[in-house]
């Protein structure tokens, strides 16, 4: 099959980009989307041009490196699929494909389709952890966890941090990403001591990175390669309200707030 690609090309962080047109010839339907780009890139290099830069690593949908807007849809048309697991058989022969980087103020473009997602790491650093110093743990079976809680935690913990939720959200919100981590740790007994502090700090960090707010469009859930539910956002909001109440109480009692 043959395709016409329209790809965002931008040489560096401080330059303006444009959409460029490329022809992808003799594409096999068994190729992954990234393999199709590999072939286009081989052709570009042979022609002495810079290949299209894009992030990718594991190519099995778990590392979260890859991600691009394909025909206006984050990670392209297949549901529950990262770009690397998208296959060309989902496209029609002769189709035009528009490829753009994730767009968000918090994800500045570095080059072509490569963006800086460091904001997501900073949200985790703000509180997306359980402070358990190495060596201090008790026997693992001393903390029984109800199977349902454990399953809920795992559902949320499946997040691969690709940023598709932000890219797909009309508001550019990182709510699903942040809520997934708050829900993962908040569902477990081990996560309770830091629950308030975690919600407070992660939400404020999310806001300070310049992400938008959540209108519950539902686009994030649809774009998520791990199909994480917007139910997590309800949980985040509960925890955030709870953390505000707790902070008032602490203050009233003369704590450090």
């Amino acid at each position: 099959m043959n395709l016409t690609l329209h790809v965002w090309r931008q040489t560096g962080p401080d330059t303006n980009g444009t959409m460029e047109r490329y022809e992808a010839r003799d594409v096999s339907p068994d190729m992954s989307f990234l393999e199709m780009l590999d072939v286009v890139n081989e052709g570009l290099v042979e022609a002495g041009q810079m290949p299209i830069a894009f992030d990718h690593d594991c190519r099995e949908g778990i590392c979260g490196s890859c991600g691009m807007m394909i025909n206006g849809v984050a990670h392209g048309p297949s549901k529950g699929t990262a770009t690397c697991q998208l296959h060309m058989r989902t496209f029609e022969d002769g189709a035009s494909v528009y490829i753009e980087p994730w767009r968000s103020r918090a994800f500045p473009v570095i080059k072509d389709l490569v963006v800086n997602r460091g904001a997501l790491d900073r949200i985790i650093a703000a509180g997306g952890f359980i402070s358990a110093q190495t060596g201090g743990a008790q026997d693992a079976n001393n903390i029984p966890v109800a199977k349902q809680d454990s399953d809920d935690a795992m559902d949320a913990a499946a997040c691969i941090g690709c940023g598709a939720c932000v890219a797909a959200c009309p508001n550019g919100s990182a709510s699903l990403f942040t809520a997934a981590k708050i829900s993962h740790l908040g569902a477990l007994p081990q996560g309770q001591p830091e629950r308030n502090r975690r919600a407070q700090r992660m939400v404020l960090q999310m806001d300070s990175e310049g992400f938008g707010h959540c209108t519950l469009y539902g686009e994030c859930q649809e774009a998520c390669p791990k199909e994480i539910s917007i139910d997590t956002i309800a949980r985040m909001n509960r925890d955030f309200v709870g953390s505000t109440v707790a902070a008032r109480e602490e203050k009233a009692l003369g704590g450090t707030g």
Binding site: A132, S150, Q190
Partner: peptide, 17 residues
């Protein structure tokens, strides 16, 4: 032990173990 303390959601039985 360490991973459970960190919140790694290992598979569990209905009894919570």
């Amino acid at each position: 032990d360490q991973c459970v303390a960190q919140g790694v959601p290992f598979a569990r039985e209905y009894g919570g173990l």
